[in-house]
Design a protein around this nucleic acid. Structure first.
Lengths: 164, 164
DNA sequence: CTCCTAATTGAAACAGAGTTTCAATAAGCC
DNA sequence: GGCTTATTGAAACTCTGTTTCAATTAGGAG
């Protein structure tokens, strides 16, 4: 993976990362043991589903996919909460105000280019941009905890067919 | 208002802008006439309330303030929608996922520093940052329509008392 | 293996923002 | 006045997120 000084694009993340799924599962199990909780088949399934898809999934996406395997809304909700507490998963507040989740382990902070035409989400890493942001916030006495930078527009594929 | 090359802070907007309220009211009326709609007292009131307060208001904030004057939720909802269509008002998706509204006329694009402690929203303008963003998106073939850059953290006032 | 205890689960119910429907009302026009 | 059309807000509904609770399940001690 080339480390461009300006930006790095992550088309996929789990793909082509040997042992990633394994590591994140172990990290989850470790977190659960530390809190006195158990790694059940439902929790396993939810994490696995997040790992197998590259897209940013909503709570409902996951629920709809796993309900037939006997996983309830509430369990998905709670498991996602746990995964966030364990810092293995993060969520983005999408346009409609709904949360979309993605795995986070070993993954540097990145921002999103959201195509308003096809709905696709591209991920970019902007170290330069963040450096400027942090510098300015510092001079203003604003201590940054995290940020969200979302760019809306048309991806290269959709930019051609301008109609609609 | 000093035009710092790096950033401009807008503590207030409508204050100290002679005739601003008048201009935005006229623009609203014009938009309504163009669409065959009427400028009623309720719509007037809602816009005026947005103009008199500097804060970023939610639909409910506005409703709670105006319900005693005989303005319903639905009317607030619809009027805000109209004002957005008229490009006189814009909304930010705040931390909880709720929309907060602000007047937009004659106002350059800006981003938000959101204090997670006191809930205060500071506005900044980052031409330099936008220039870099646009440049990078261009090289990627992503045509930018708009963006949202929200920084969460502690404002200078809240940064001191780190407790809680 | 059995009992005990504590975690787990999901249905149901709830909260809150946003949105649509609809009958009653108000405003503009002829 | 009478006709037409916009306006309004209560009510109902959707959707996401969240809590409650009784039933179930799993793990550990004896």
């Amino acid at each position: 993976m080339p480390e461009n000084a300006e930006l790095t694009i992550f088309p996929t993340w789990t793909a082509g990362r040997p042992g990633y799924a394994q590591r994140i599962r172990e990290a989850f199990q470790e977190h659960l043991e530390k809190t006195g909780l158990r790694l059940t088949s439902q929790r396993q399934r939810i994490l696995d589903y997040l790992l197998t898809t590259e897209k940013h999934l909503s709570l409902n996406d996951i629920y709809q996919a796993l309900r037939k395997h006997g996983v309830g809304r509430v369990t998905v909700f709670r498991t996602l909460k746990m995964l966030e507490e364990a810092k293995l998963v993060d969520h983005v507040t999408a346009a409609g105000g709904t949360s979309r989740f993605e795995v986070k382990l070993e993954r540097p902070h990145h921002d999103h280019l959201i195509c308003v035409h096809c709905g696709g989400i591209q991920e970019v890493r902007w170290p330069e941009l963040e450096k400027i942001q942090d510098k300015i916030c510092k001079t203003m006495g604003f201590s940054v905890a995290w940020h969200r930078h979302e760019v809306f527009g048309r991806c290269s594929a959709c930019a051609e067919g301008k109609a609609s």
